[in-house]
């Protein structure tokens, strides 16, 4: 469904991602793991069209998307849910959700109900300014906002960041739920164990290169690798 072929991303002279190739199959949860600064977010930004790549190709459903603007990529069903700091903090929760549905026509009531069934907390907070939400609620809102676009392919940037362990488990469950509704997921995480438990396939990124790729279960068995590359 999504394929990166020899992608390189540079910020001026600094190479953030080097000659990276990866494949995400339709219907799967694929994890992209790596420590801080390994280039995970740069990869996501490149796929979403917010970073231009300096060489290589990005294909979504066989179509090259690395040359089209970010707001057009969303219309193809490929949606990035960025870091939870990047919700619209001066807007209410409801407004955030409406912006999420910006590309769609027609009624969004049904989708709102679907989303409240995954994240009931958001329903209570609907009128609140999202800048006043707690860390966990922001994360929920970020994901909910992305879901409002009805993605076929959802990219999540560290959904577990800053969450308490029990909330991380809940979040991972929510991600599985979303996947079961037919959404393909690319999950970027620093928290390797939690991500590997829900993912089907995983790539490990180190200083801008893929160093390991494997079925998630296999990787989960090999503690040494996880600890070596990801620091546990």
């Amino acid at each position: 469904m999504l394929e990166l072929k020899n992608v390189t991303v540079k910020y001026g002279p600094v190479v953030a991602v080097r000659d990276l190739s990866l494949l995400v199959k339709e219907g799967s949860i694929t994890a992209l793991l790596g420590a801080n600064g390994s280039g995970k977010t740069s990869v996501l930004m490149a796929i979403a069209g917010l970073n231009r790549i300096s060489s290589g190709q990005i294909l979504f459903n066989e179509e090259r998307i690395d040359l089209i603007p970010a707001y057009e990529i969303v219309r193809r069903g490929l949606v990035l849910c960025p870091d939870s700091k990047l919700i619209f903090q001066n807007m209410t929760v409801f407004e955030n959700l409406k912006v999420g549905a910006y590309t769609r026509k027609g009624d969004i009531k049904k989708d709102l109900e679907d989303i409240f069934s995954i994240f009931p907390r958001l329903k209570e907070r609907l009128k609140q300014l999202s800048g006043t939400l707690s860390g966990g609620e922001r994360q929920m809102l970020a994901i909910a906002r992305a879901l409002m676009a009805k993605p076929r392919f959802l990219m999540l940037d560290e959904p577990s960041m800053g969450l308490a362990p029990n909330l991380v488990r809940e979040m991972m469950k929510a991600i599985q739920m979303i996947n079961r509704t037919g959404v393909t997921i690319l999950l970027v995480e620093q928290n390797a164990y939690s991500a590997l438990k829900v993912a089907h396939y995983a790539y490990v990124l180190q200083t801008g290169r893929i160093v390991i790729q494997s079925v998630a279960e296999e990787l989960l068995k090999d503690r040494k690798i996880i600890e070596g590359y990801l620091g546990g």
């Binding site: 069209g49 970010a70 707001y71 969303v74 949606v79 619209f88 001066n90 912006v99 910006y102 676009a149």
Partner: peptide, 19 residues
Amino acid sequence: LAVKAVSENEKISQLMGIN
């Protein structure tokens, strides 16, 4: 809605499909 989104964060509003 687009005006509000863009004035708060131009980059992120692109991720919502706003030009």
